[in-house]
Design a protein around this nucleic acid. Structure first.
Lengths: 164, 164
DNA sequence: TATGAAATTCCCTAAAC
DNA sequence: GTTTAGGGAATTTCATA
């Protein structure tokens, strides 16, 4: 069961926006920014973390890592039971080379972002994940030449109305 | 100019792997995990941060946010000068709805991940980013039904050899 | 129930070695 | 690289609206 959808107030929206940009900000700085005491901010962060809404991760700069091969892979499964999809999901989540995996609308079932250390490594992983398993109908690998922007920032509320 | 590529030792690889999974780990816990004192770990983290290799961000769970519309957009520009691409890059980096933007090999120039609050919002953003500008040849929007896996974990070294 | 301020604990940071 | 010492931040307690 999914946790009950949290109701976010104005403080939450602002805090989550700031944290998504820099998770190192101190509680007192966050408090000053949103107009709350450090204690109040701390309690909210604890709540986010306990509910699983928020986690903190380190993001590396791909440009500073040698031997990095990124690829976007489009995947379509054979028409099968939902069981097969569940197994596919588990496989994606378990593979360390799978950065992201999305269920898509349209003629491709999945978009998978792979992070590997070489083209050979990428091929090996793709064959293991998308070929050896019998229920994949087709997959298409698009190599990434360059990363223009990298983040996971999500909007927590509708954008402000813009004048026409 | 890019910074000179850092040479990473075994400690660095382990630390970066741990931090990409949980950036909240304390210095002493990290030290215990890799066999180093907390101070030594602290100096390394400072080095990563100063070089721009590492930054810390909060990641939100998309499943817990109402009104979230994710989309993968494939984009191809008109055959134009590199200038146009530079302008496109700047536009992608400046737009808060653009989560990620990759330069692709193949028949599509770019893959753009959009995070918006509704289909209407997504359409508005896509038209602003990919339609109003004259140098876009075509773009194809694939809506995301579900997020199976979400992260930005990168490998910092080749994988261990696996037995056949 | 959530707040802000004070007290405590713990961690980060910068020394010295 | 380690150990040490000091300041600062995170966390808890408590009184309050």
């Amino acid at each position: 069961m999914a946790a009950t959808p949290p109701i976010l107030d104005e403080f939450d929206h602002k805090l989550l926006e700031l944290l998504q940009r820099d998770a190192d900000t101190t509680l007192s700085v966050l408090g000053d920014a949103v107009g709350l005491s450090a204690s109040a901010v701390q309690r909210r962060l604890t709540r986010y973390r306990k509910s699983g809404l928020l986690r903190q991760v380190a993001v590396l700069d791909p440009a500073q890592l040698g031997n990095l091969t990124l690829a976007a892979v489009l995947v379509t499964l054979e028409r099968e039971s939902a069981k097969k999809h569940t197994a596919f999901h588990a496989r994606m989540r378990a593979a360390p080379e799978v950065q992201q995996c999305y269920v898509l609308a349209g003629d491709w079932d999945y978009l998978v972002i792979l992070a590997t250390t070489s083209i050979a490594h990428c091929r090996e992983v793709a064959e293991r994940l998308f070929y050896d398993e019998g229920n994949i109908k087709r997959y298409d690998t698009r190599f990434v030449f360059d990363t223009v922007k990298l983040g996971l920032q999500l909007p927590t509320r509708p954008p402000p109305r813009r004048r026409k």
